[in-house]
Design a protein around this nucleic acid. Structure first.
Lengths: 143, 143
DNA sequence: CTGAATCCTTTATGATACTG
DNA sequence: CAGTATCATAAAGGATTCAG
């Protein structure tokens, strides 16, 4: 069961399950009935810039890894994901622009090292990613 | 406040907040310490096929809308998202393959209409998407 | 209305080489 | 090590047309 790493946090999966059941209750009971498709559309188009960033290649991986490891260097991520440095740079710059990631340069070494970590805002996103990834992991197992 | 549609379900936002705080506790207390980057990488590569599907353009929108509206026709989605029919077809086929969406053909009308809804598996994903989108909405407001 | 078929454009990503 | 620059390619998406 090691491969599922954080699911060895036994309480997590059941907690996610409980939670999703709760919000399902809220969503279905109160306010879904009169929701127009246009409202949904409007909502989503406001989110579009964020969706474009978050739901793009490597970004969930980066956020997730940073969330769990707290702090990673450029090279650690590059090797871990097998991503080219150009693309990794692009993504990190984008995440910085959106205030989700912050960069710290350690000039005391030679060559210098650059570390990245999530901002508070980025941590929120990382956290909100957990339920989704947890659900998806359940699906992978069942294939 | 209407533009945030389901956030008029007042209790949802606070519930998401509570929950995220709870799992944050679980994640930080128990099992993060010894988690290796390689484990994270392994986990993510198992998820890769799902990540590729879920985290691709239009898919979050489709799942979210289907989750909230329960049932939409091909044309409703096409118009709502302003997506071309080729791409919409592609995405729906993919989601069907992954068992997240099911299709129902109503042949009693002329021309026929085709409706899509989430499978149970798809509903889980839709539900798990809510915390993430809720967090992102908070960020959009604050810009 | 629901697509399948085509074609075409854009974007995203990969590979490689190079610099401070 | 952490990028930047460049080139090449693949993948994704859009527009249009057409048929059952």
């Amino acid at each position: 069961m090691l491969y599922l790493s954080y699911s060895s946090c036994g309480s997590l999966i059941s907690k996610v399950g409980e939670f999703l059941k709760e919000i399902e209750g809220i969503l279905s009971s109160e306010c879904l009935k009169e929701l127009a498709l246009d409202d949904i559309k409007g909502e989503l188009s406001r989110l579009a810039p964020y969706l474009k960033v978050i739901f793009s290649r490597w970004v969930p991986e980066i956020i997730y890894a940073l969330y769990l490891k707290r702090r990673l260097s450029f090279n650690e991520m590059k090797k871990a994901f097998g991503i080219s440095s150009r693309v990794l740079t692009d993504k990190l710059r984008l995440l910085e622009e959106y205030g989700l990631v912050k960069k710290e340069v350690d000039t005391s070494t030679r060559p210098i090292r650059v570390y990245y970590e999530l901002t508070n805002s980025g941590k929120e996103v990382g956290l909100a990613l957990i339920p989704l990834l947890t659900i998806l992991k359940g699906k992978v197992k069942s294939i």
